[in-house]
């Protein structure tokens, strides 16, 4: 696969390497995915008799939601810092920051599980009403994206890290691209949080 141009060096016209353009197109499709879910939410909400009532009844855990927002934003910044460390060729600093990202992502999932557990123990299931259905679907899909991120970051920290010694530029690009995805996951949560917890 070494024959494919622009895997590490940038294309003279677009100024991009393949992976970066690829991940942005993927994110554009993700925008459409979450956009469709958001328009579902809007359509159901304007059509509902008493959305506020359903929301109050569901009694989402606002403190946990807020803390999770902090956690995810922090994990976003550790990704930026880890990438910056790679540019400065400081691999051990990179590992600390990138490891912190995985830890924060796991922390997010733990809080999320606690939240789900609280809901289930109060017999709040997706089938109860459409607010809970939207809540579980959107946060569930978002959590799947977090898990996907953890898998990728875990790979790049573990077996994938060998590439740093053979093709450092390509490895740095991979980190940048992963970062873009991770920021997007953060961005989705930034919109999900007020949509579900505050409105």
């Amino acid at each position: 696969m070494d024959t494919i141009p622009y895997t590490t060096e940038v294309h003279p016209e677009t100024g991009l390497y393949n992976g970066k353009l690829g991940v942005w197109i993927f994110l554009a499709s993700e925008v459409m995915l979450f956009g469709a879910l958001f328009s579902t939410f809007v359509f159901l909400r304007v059509g509902a008799d008493d959305w506020q009532g359903m929301q109050t009844q569901a009694a989402l855990n606002l403190p946990i939601g807020t803390i999770n927002t902090f956690v995810l934003i922090t994990s976003s910044i550790t990704v930026v810092l880890s990438w910056a460390s790679l540019i400065e060729k400081d691999f051990s600093k990179f590992r600390r920051y990138f490891g912190a990202t995985v830890a924060l992502a796991l922390l997010f999932l733990i809080f999320k599980s606690v939240e789900y557990y609280q809901k289930f123990s109060h017999e709040a299931y997706p089938e109860n009403n459409n607010f809970l259905a939207v809540y579980f679907t959107l946060t569930g899909l978002h959590a799947l994206h977090v898990i996907g991120g953890i898998v990728v970051i875990g790979y790049l920290l573990g077996p994938g890290a060998k590439m740093w010694h053979t093709e450092p530029e390509r490895y740095t690009n991979r980190i940048e691209v992963t970062g873009l995805y991770w920021h997007f996951v953060d961005l989705v949560w930034i919109f999900l949080f007020p949509t579900l917890y505050l409105m």
């Binding site: 622009y6 294309h11 353009l21 197109i25 993927f26």
Partner: peptide, 11 residues
């Protein structure tokens, strides 16, 4: 689709 767009723009 992602692969096609990148291929046609970059390669």
């Amino acid at each position: 689709g992602i692969n096609f767009i990148v291929t046609i723009i970059q390669l």
